[in-house]
Simulated scan of single mutants.
Amino acid sequence: MSIVSTPSPGLAADAPARRDAEATKTAILRAARHLLARHAHADITLKAIAERAGVSAPLVLKYFGNKDTLFARVMSFELDATALLDAPLDELGRHMVRHLLVSQRDQGADPILRIVFAPLHGEQGDILRTNFRTQVSERLAARLTGPDAGLRAELAVSTLLGLGVMYGIARGTHLRGADVDDIVERYAPAVQAQLA
């Protein structure tokens, strides 16, 4: 069964008639990430990605060549991890929580939540897991000092994933209705406790 996604209300209509290449690539990647976080890899069509991005399917092929090349980019956490971990260690918990919430609220994209859907993706799920371990968990562990750095990194990321699931998937009404600064103040200490 193929997934045919309808574009978000106003997405295609609001898209500029002429986009620059980077904006188009970003829209395509965002659309593919959105679909990957909701459907099995095998069920996602280039047409669905194009519709969600507000572009034509040939344009997806122009920029990425084929579905496998596109999803190789989507399954990488490299750029997301760079942004997620871009803070001094003593402020990293706050930064990670804020980055996750603002990414979901403002861009409709979560920097790490797609790992939750790895079981849906068969062999591609194994790639997603490997990328997540090396590009997020192990990269964070390498920044930590003291004993059990790997375990502490995984616990910090697990705590962050829980917040991402409740905010982005379960769509907790109280959580989504709260001020981001308030959530950061309440939640960041739990993440930071594993990092310090």
Rank of each mutant, 00 (worst) to 15 (best):
S2P: 13
V4G: 07
T6H: 14
A12N: 12
A13L: 13
D14A: 15
A15K: 14
P16V: 04
R19A: 09
R19H: 03
A21F: 05
A21V: 11
E22Q: 10
E22A: 09
A23S: 11
A23M: 05
A23L: 07
K25A: 06
A27R: 05
I28Y: 05
I28R: 09
L29T: 03
L29E: 04
A31C: 05
A32I: 08
A32L: 08
A37C: 04
R38W: 04
H39D: 00
A40H: 06
A40W: 11
H41C: 10
I44V: 10
L46N: 11
L46R: 09
K47F: 07
A48F: 07
E51P: 04
A53G: 02
G54H: 07
V55F: 00
V55G: 05
S56T: 01
S56L: 13
S56W: 01
P58L: 03
L59C: 08
V60D: 00
L61W: 03
L61F: 11
G65D: 08
G65N: 02
T69E: 13
R73H: 13
V74R: 02
S76L: 00
S76W: 02
F77R: 02
A81H: 12
T82K: 11
T82V: 11
L85H: 03
L85K: 08
D90Y: 12
D90A: 14
H95P: 03
M96V: 13
M96R: 13
H99E: 12
H99P: 10
S103H: 04
R105S: 15
G108V: 04
G108P: 06
A109H: 12
D110W: 08
P111K: 02
I112H: 03
V116A: 15
F117C: 15
P119G: 03
L120V: 02
H121V: 04
H121N: 04
G122D: 15
G122A: 15
E123T: 14
E123P: 06
L128N: 04
T130P: 05
N131G: 12
N131C: 06
F132H: 06
F132I: 00
V136P: 04
E138M: 07
R139W: 03
L140V: 01
T145R: 14
P147T: 10
P147R: 13
G150N: 09
L151Y: 12
A153C: 03
A153T: 04
L155R: 10
L155N: 10
A156K: 02
G162F: 01
G162Q: 10
L163C: 06
L163R: 03
V165H: 10
V165P: 08
M166A: 06
M166P: 00
I169W: 09
R171M: 13
L175I: 03
L175K: 11
G177A: 08
D179T: 11
D179N: 14
V180D: 06
D181M: 07
D181N: 13
D181K: 06
D182M: 09
D182Q: 12
D182I: 11
D182Y: 10
I183N: 01
E185G: 09
E185R: 13
Y187H: 07
A188G: 00
P189R: 01
A190W: 08
A193L: 14
A196P: 13
A196W: 12
